[in-house]
Amino acid sequence: MHPARAWRGRSQRYRLEGEICEGCGARLFPPRDICPECQRPARTPYPLSGRGEVYSYTVVYEPPAGYEEQAPYIVALIKLEEGPLISAMLTDVEPEEVYIGMPVEMVTRVLHRQGERGVIAYGYKFRPVLRRMATMPAQPATVTA
């Protein structure tokens, strides 16, 4: 991945920044600039909480190029509490522990590496909600690396 391409997606990948439609209030992720609900412009940034639950999941045993070292890994559709579905890997969990409806939260991890000299792409993954976090106000994770 070209560094500019990784940089361009920083607000979404690191902060889960979507958009809110001024017209109908729909919260959108990924950003799409035109609201699919009412077809009006939706360009106001809106950070999502990063909390949601598993809508569906699978384990990838035959990975695409660039993801071999992570396989087998779990990818899921997450239903965010604000409404949108999002595609992401699940982390810090074994496949047999995952179930549809499992509460999850966003964390920031390495998505993939491109060899010794390539870009290390960071972004969101989701993990089971930690019990000790349940009483704290959850914040979207930030990147320090």
Partner: peptide, 17 residues
Amino acid sequence: AVHGMTFTALNALLMRR
């Protein structure tokens, strides 16, 4: 795709749901 999604995986998500 950046999240390691393959075509089989996308169909698997549909099939499980």
